[in-house]
Design a binder for these strands. Structure first.
Length: 857
DNA sequence: AGCACGCCGACT
DNA sequence: GTCGGCGTGCTC
């Protein structure tokens, strides 16, 4: 048997399997998904076994054996290995990148190289050294290494800087021995646990054997006779107020056992979760639950789009679907946007499913995340709730995947592998015949379009898993066809808020009018009045400001000069905390100037409204007002997010002022006013999804008001009150928004009608860049003409200068490809670009290809 | 990605 | 004549 291994070298040339001999000793426990160390060229690297075959496709003489197996249990399942392959094709990433994304960072390889003295050779060399009276550091190096036994290579090279060649020759001659290891970044946490003998009464005999002075040891033994369960050493020592040494003494006598035992770092240790019972469903909840339950019972893959207004009780539907799934002996994944993965959210799931739940999110320490992940891998839990990457939970019989707030952009990973969790979820669900529930008050256009398509398609049932046999059989079997002609989602709708509370009225405030009336402040008069009123009535206010608005640029009022980054064509952003201006693209920073660098005027000011500025302004307008500001600056500390919300809940403030993070899922009974300071900040972004994002944001924010007895009210300040995104959001009218937005998308050739691929080409000099870009795009155009016979199934736009024409001193051009139908196009484009590899390497041109991962349909 | 091999300029 | 620059190519 030969193992086919993907090695930990993310490069085009190594993006394939390499074959290795499986040593006999590993036969039993090496499996698909095993993490291994393999010799690769002159070094040892980490890799994953992705398949096994009878024969290698290279000469047997080239084969080397696997050096080590890293884990007792493979960290990946065959299904995940297959999924990684799908990801690499779909999102154009290296297979190893996809595989690495599936395991916790703690398991990422750490390569260490160190040197030791090389056996017999060193006497001879030392003698030689003396004989020649050499002037080099040979003897010093040997002595240094001898004194330390083993020295990391890096440290040695640093200590004897300039002797790199000498050290190398010493390694070659055998004077020094170079050793390489692969280590985990982190391993399971171990603690010492005291194990009393099985029959604790034997300890009684021991007590009498103790010398009279050993009072402490006697106490310990007596305690263990009374409490014979294994106990942590630290706990025991603390409880009896004795030193650890006392207990260790007993272990040395052999009377009690003391062993290192693996434990989980539990981020929720010591927290009690009150058990909750299923709540009775409303009529609507029951209606949407029924088809989900049916799919689960039938073990049938189906995707549901649960469109429910804010406060309609989607979570209870999730909880009961999960219960159903668990009762069938299957497992469930719940994805929640990072930002709404709050303790309250976790509590709801832990309250219902107790210790069956693992939680994965970015606020965990590496160790905690690793342990939660191990609970999944070791089958100690059956429910995972987590952010984006929790979609890779190594379950083996998934029954249900829930994606809450499915429209959220945080489900899309921005760096490689650029996947979308929603798409990965569906891909996994197909393989497991699992149900997927996409929940949102404002579904993404992609999802809603697919759900409504169903009507025109004679109600085809959900997509079934691949043809016959195991759902994991064959990597490619039936896959391409399934992706090219995906089935529709099933739309489930909930229009009523639980207990029939009305959605709050939304007032649009035209800021142009305000300006005309001479109001130059950031608060319109209606919003000002509304805040004043709430303060009087001792009710609470949520104020929302988009984060983008915080990106303040610096401009001179005298000459109009704007501070820009010297390396990128982008304005610098002012950071108050450090009194600097910074570039968000290359990290360039300089101290904030007091005078304009262009005209030396002192009238240099920041523009754009930030949360800090709003806070200041509130203080001026409403003396004594208590404001809690929640943004990146105030929530970096661990747990601060929760702390601020608790303060607000406890009525320690009148106003909660924040960015996106106040828009999500918060539920405070005394909030009766929500104000949106500037609704158009997102709208004006050069992004075809700007309208959609504005609608979603406004709808989410508006949903924060009047969720309890007190009726709520929303004020939205805008310079474009006639824009359909804002008008439809204020009327809580998703369908109307959808209709308009779809019309725009169709006219513009955007998703969901077309998929997009963005090619970015960069170079230090414009002429070379233009030449390469035009030649590449010409090549692609030709190729597509051949592929599509000139139909309008594919369009190539550009090349044109990128929205940010220069980053890190490199000029950038882009080319957008819009296409529909053929899902193999990304690979085709990647191949076309490969023809330019040589030219690019020679002239240092960079080509990047991004597949918009929201669009796979 | 590393790392070695290999072919041309500034030094002992 | 050699040391060393980094271009090119390979890793089972």
């Amino acid at each position: 048997m030969i193992a086919n291994v993907i090695v930990d070298v993310p490069a085009k040339q190594t993006n394939r399997t390499f074959d290795y001999i499986i040593p006999d000793a590993m036969r039993g426990w090496l499996a698909i998904g095993s993490r291994v160390g393999v010799p690769f060229g002159p070094r040892v690297v980490q890799g994953f076994v992705v398949s096994m075959s009878e024969r290698a496709d290279v000469a047997a003489s080239k084969l080397k054996p696997i050096a080590q197996v890293m884990d007792l249990v493979p960290p990946l399942t065959p299904e995940l290995v297959e999924l990684a392959r799908w990801m690499s094709r779909t999102y154009l990433c290296h297979e190893i990148t996809a595989l690495q994304a599936m395991i916790p960072g703690a398991l990422k390889a750490k390569y260490e190289r160190y040197v030791t003295l090389g056996g017999a050779a060193d006497e001879e060399a030392a003698a030689q050294g003396f004989g020649q009276l050499s002037f080099d550091n040979r003897a010093d190096i040997a002595a240094f290494v001898r004194s330390k036994e083993h020295v990391p290579l890096e440290q040695l090279l640093e200590r004897f800087a300039g002797d790199g060649a000498l050290i190398q020759s010493m390694i070659k001659s055998g004077e020094l021995l170079e050793v390489q290891t692969i280590k985990n970044r982190l391993s399971a946490k171990k603690v010492l646990v005291v194990y009393p003998p099985e029959d604790p009464s034997v300890l009684e005999a021991c007590v009498s054997k103790l010398p009279a002075g050993a009072k402490r040891q006697k106490e310990v033994l007596e305690h263990l006779i009374r409490n014979p369960a294994p106990v942590r050493l630290t706990e025991l020592a603390l409880e009896l107020n004795v030193g650890a040494g006392t207990v260790k003494g007993l272990a040395d006598k052999g009377w009690i056992g003391l062993r290192e035992t693996e434990v989980f770092r539990d981020p929720y240790a010591g927290r009690e979760f009150k058990r909750t019972q299923p709540l009775p469903f409303t009529e609507e909840q029951a209606a949407v639950f029924e088809p989900i339950q049916a799919a689960l019972t039938a073990v049938r893959h189906e995707v549901f789009l649960l469109h429910g207004v804010t406060g309609s009780g989607k979570t209870e539907v999730y909880l009961q679907a999960i219960r159903q799934c668990l009762d069938q002996g299957r497992e469930a994944i719940v994805l929640v946007p990072e930002i709404s993965l709050t303790p309250q959210m976790v509590e709801r799931f832990k309250g219902r499913f107790g210790s069956e739940v693992a939680v994965l999110h970015s606020r965990l320490s590496n160790g905690e995340r690793y342990d939660e992940w191990r609970k999944i891998a070791l089958k100690q839990v059956r429910v995972v709730i987590g952010a984006r990457s929790a979609i890779f939970a190594p379950f083996t019989s998934l029954g249900l995947i829930i994606i809450d707030e499915e429209h959220e952009t945080s489900y899309k990973q921005e760096d490689s592998p650029k996947y979308h969790a929603r798409e990965v979820a569906i891909e996994r669900a197909i393989r497991h015949r699992a149900a997927v529930v996409l929940g949102s008050a404002t579904p993404s256009l992609e999802s809603y379009y697919r759900a409504s398509e169903r009507d025109d398609r004679s109600g085809a049932a959900g997509r079934q898993a691949g043809p016959g046999g195991s759902p994991f059989a064959g990597v490619n079997a039936g896959r391409a066809a399934a992706v090219a002609h995906p089935s529709a989602y099933r739309l489930l709708t909930m229009k009523e808020r639980v207990q029939g509370r009305p959605l709050p009225p939304v007032h649009l405030v035209d800021m142009r009018e305000e300006l005309k009336q001479g109001n130059r402040s950031m608060f319109s008069r209606p919003l000002y009045k509304a805040i004043e009123e709430r303060l009087e009535k001792k009710q609470q206010v949520v104020l929302f400001l988009n984060r983008r608005g915080y990106s303040t640029f610096v401009m001179c009022r005298e000459c109009g000069h704007t501070l820009g980054c010297p390396h990128c064509d982008i304005s610098l952003t002012y950071h108050q905390s450090s009194q600097t201006v910074r570039c968000h693209y290359c990290g360039y920073a300089e101290p904030q100037a007091r005078t304009c660098p262009s005209c030396s005027s002192e009238h240099i000011r920041f523009f754009g409204t930030g949360t800090q500025k709003v806070e200041e302004e509130l203080g001026k307008l409403f003396p004594g007002i208590r404001v809690i500001r929640m943004d990146v600056d105030t929530t970096t500390e661990k747990g601060s997010h929760e702390k601020l919300l608790t303060m607000f809940r406890n009525r320690e403030a009148d106003v909660l002022l924040g960015t996106q993070m106040v828009a999500k899922g918060l539920d405070f009974p005394d909030v009766t006013l929500v104000g949106v300071i500037a609704a158009d900040t997102v709208l004006n972004l050069p992004d075809f999804r700007a309208g959609e994002r504005t609608f979603q944001l406004l709808t989410q924010v508006a949903g924060r008001a009047g969720r309890h007895e007190l009726p709520g009210e929303v004020f939205v300040q805008t310079y474009t009150p006639e824009h359909y995104s804002i008008v439809t959001a204020s009327g809580h009218d998703y369908e109307a928004f959808l209709e308009e937005e779809l019309r725009m998308r169709e006219a513009g050739g955007y998703p969901p009608y077309y998929r997009l691929i963005l090619i970015t080409i960069s170079h230090e000099q414009i002429p070379m860049l233009v030449r390469t870009a035009e030649s590449l795009v010409g090549h692609i155009k030709e190729l597509l003409l051949r592929e599509t016979d000139g139909s309008d199934d594919a369009m190539v736009l550009g090349p044109v200068a990128s929205p940010i024409p220069r980053i890190k001193d490199r000029y950038r051009f882009q080319c957008m490809i819009k296409y529909r139908g053929d899902s193999q196009l990304p690979s085709l484009i990647a191949k076309a670009a490969e023809a330019f590899d040589d030219v690019c390497r020679q002239h240092n041109v960079q080509i990047g290809i991004d597949v918009d991962p929201q669009l796979l349909m």
